[in-house]
């Protein structure tokens, strides 16, 4: 059965919204399509033919990476490869390069987009985890004509369930603050060699050191999947703020994270016990790495392509 009948390639967000409105729920946004086509073809929720796909990858506002007025802007239809190749993002939001760099293989990264990763609304989407740690905002063009910037966390309603209805609304892009002096980020994740390519656990941290350069002034940590939507590890963050960044502190923060986060056992992915071990493993990798970057100002993404 054809999975869709018509294929539209608008060049503006307005045009895309108009297409969606015209099909009244029977058309969907497609960016890279690397998740969408598989859903349409192989899962029950996709078992009905769509009237149309609306391709947003030729809308300029959705495909650019730019920096202005203290924000880095990344269009929702920017590919993972484009994020990885961006020197700007590598330097000022390293974790995003590290998370986009482990999605799929090169063929998927060349086509799949950051917006798609977020719109898919998985509780541990690699790009999502880093965007949460970056405290990013999402720009949404709603079907009713409203345009708004929302904290990224507001987009998630449940596993695989987004606030954005991709048959009606358009996720246009993201913005976040670039890392300033003594600020840095890092992303690490744990995979298993079997089964679906979802992380057992992913972890992104944003860290700000104070002017002594060895104390944590502020921190944001996102570890997932822990709940049904991506969330910050606030107890662990609180335990770190104001503390000296040494092994002892990091162990204490990891211990608190292990005690306060309650990951679940998920079938064919991981046991809860193992995930708790991995919380410690990941924090002990990501926190010192971010601290080192914040201290040196040198941020070279690790593990790109090694997903």
């Amino acid at each position: 059965m054809p999975l869709w009948h018509h294929y539209h390639i608008p060049t503006t967000v307005e045009e895309a919204l108009a297409h969606l409105a015209r099909y009244d729920g029977k058309a969907r946004i497609i960016a890279g399509g690397t998740d969408l086509l598989i859903d349409l073809q192989h899962t029950e929720k996709g078992a009905h033919t769509l009237d149309a796909l609306v391709d947003v990858t030729r809308i300029q506002a959705m495909t650019e990476i730019s920096a202005s007025e203290g924000w880095i802007y990344v269009g929702a239809a920017v590919t993972h490869t484009a994020v990885v190749d961006s020197a700007l993002i590598e330097l000022q939001a390293t974790c995003l390069v590290e998370s986009c760099g482990v999605v799929g293989g090169p063929q998927v990264r060349n086509v799949g987009t950051l917006g798609g990763n977020v719109a898919h609304a998985l509780p541990a989407g690699d790009g999502t985890t880093s965007l949460i740690a970056l405290d990013a905002e999402a720009h949404v063009a709603w079907a009713d004509g409203r345009r708004e910037w929302l904290p990224i966390g507001c987009l998630f309603k449940g596993p695989g369930e987004s606030a954005i209805d991709s048959t009606r609304d358009v996720l246009v892009g993201f913005r976040f603050r670039p890392c300033a002096q003594r600020e840095a980020t890092a992303f690490k994740r744990i995979m298993r060699p079997q089964g679906v390519a979802l992380p057992i656990l992913g972890c992104a941290v944003w860290l700000k050191l104070d002017d002594r350069s060895d104390h944590c002034a502020d921190v944001r940590i996102c570890i997932g999947p822990v709940g049904s939507i991506p969330a910050r590890a606030s107890e662990a963050e609180n335990a770190l703020r104001g503390q000296v960044m040494d092994d002892e502190t990091i162990q204490a923060v990891a211990d608190i994270a292990c005690q306060t986060l309650h990951p679940r056992t998920s079938k064919y992915r991981a046991t809860a016990d193992y995930r708790v071990y991995m919380i410690e493993t990941l924090l002990k990798q990501a926190l010192p790495l971010a601290a080192r970057r914040a201290q040196t100002g040198i941020a070279q993404a690790e593990g790109v392509g090694l997903g």
């Binding site: 294929y7 390639i9 497609i30 399509g33 690397t34 086509l37 598989i38 073809q41 796909l53 391709d55 990858t57 090169p106 063929q107 998927v108 060349n110 086509v111």
Partner: peptide
């Protein structure tokens, strides 16, 4: 390089 099996032709 892309996976042509899930790449809509009109893209």
């Amino acid at each position: 390089p892309v996976d042509s099996c899930i790449y809509p032709a009109f893209k």
